[in-house]
Simulated assay, not measured.
Amino acid sequence: MEILLEEFYKTDLHLDKFHDRKVQIDEKSYQISGITKSGKTQLVKSYLLSHKKNSYLYIDCDDIRIDIEQLNNLLNQFCHNNRIDILVLDNYKKGVDFANVSQLLITTALKLDIPELEYINLYPLDYEEFLAYEHKYDSSALNHFFQLGGLAIMHKIYADERNIYLQHILKNALDDMEFDILVLCAKLNSQKLSAFTIYERLKAKRKISKDKLYKSFQNLVEKKYIHQLEKFDHTKATKKLYLCDTSLKSALCLEKNFSRLFENMVFLELIKKSKSVYYEDEIDFYLPQNNEIILCKPFADERRLFKKLENIEAFLFTHSITKITVITMTKEGSVSHPLSKVDIIPFDIWALGD
């Protein structure tokens, strides 16, 4: 094991075309979690490469050559002998002991209860981060975002291989039950969906334990492969379900619904902005702190929009809504309404705004 530690210590790290993320690492110790290929390893390596090589030790805990018991016996002394300031335990496994170093960085799929570590949840790229990977910013950028999603690695995968690649990395990251649930969620994204409904659908196709399914569903939520959205002031109502990245839709199912995919994309931008958000009947997103509602209308039609506004006037009045934002693909403008200001904004302009 000591020979393996020497190998880790001497091996040069490489990072290809990394673009800065909005999340940054400083001198504190961190736990960084996120879905597979969200950029955890790249973020850590970028930070390490700004330091002297002999000051850090990078260990990928997925390396099958690692014996945890032997590692625990040797790691602290090895770090002391080599005056290591920064220790990285990538793909951290429970049972691996922390060494006494100035800075510890671990990456995990699931958030662990480690109070001494600052916590970072790393989402896939948002639209602004995605643009750093584009050769030029023009009308094609948004279409690329729909095709590729927020996983930076997808820029390096040929178009004909992307779906199979995504299937493989998801199967590797999830167990069979979690993967089957995620496939069904991809078919029904941006809709009200409960664990019980998923159970009812899947039990017709395979022998399944309700307890195991509920646990697997909760694991997907905690790992943030799926997101749930509550109905405003109705915590017991069925939650709406969204995918962690829009690229999963085409990779995991044949069903196409552009409006629902567009809504999913808007939702991901909202949670990355740390907005408090809910849904309401006939309202895609309600932001109470802003007195704002958001309607997702990729191809806005003014006649239908007026009809929609009529249907939700009671909610607008009751909750003193002062701002209605209608997010579209390309259309821009405003609509006169007696209760609220109505702005029609293309997704790219909205996503890049404050």
Rank of each mutant, 00 (worst) to 15 (best):
I3N: 14
I3S: 06
L4N: 03
L5F: 02
T11S: 14
H14P: 04
D20H: 12
Q24G: 08
S29K: 09
T41P: 01
Q42E: 07
V44G: 02
S46Q: 07
L48P: 00
S50M: 12
H51P: 01
D67L: 02
N72D: 12
L74H: 13
I84C: 03
L87I: 05
V88A: 03
L89Y: 03
D90M: 01
D90P: 00
K94R: 14
L105M: 09
I106Y: 04
T108M: 09
L112H: 06
I114Y: 07
L117P: 15
Y127C: 01
A132Y: 12
L142D: 08
H144R: 15
H144C: 04
I157A: 07
I157G: 06
D160A: 09
E161R: 13
R162A: 04
L166R: 08
Q167F: 04
L174D: 03
D175Q: 08
D175P: 10
M177T: 15
V183E: 07
S194C: 14
I198Y: 06
Y199G: 11
K203A: 11
K207C: 03
Y214S: 13
N219L: 13
Y225V: 05
D233V: 06
H234N: 11
L241W: 05
D245R: 02
D245I: 00
K249C: 09
S259I: 09
M265I: 15
L268W: 03
K272S: 04
Y278L: 06
Y278T: 06
E282L: 14
I283T: 02
Y286R: 12
N291W: 04
K297R: 11
D301E: 11
F306N: 13
F306D: 08
K323D: 12
I324F: 11
T328E: 01
T330C: 07
T330E: 06
S336L: 13
H337Y: 14
L339E: 05
L352E: 04
L352R: 15
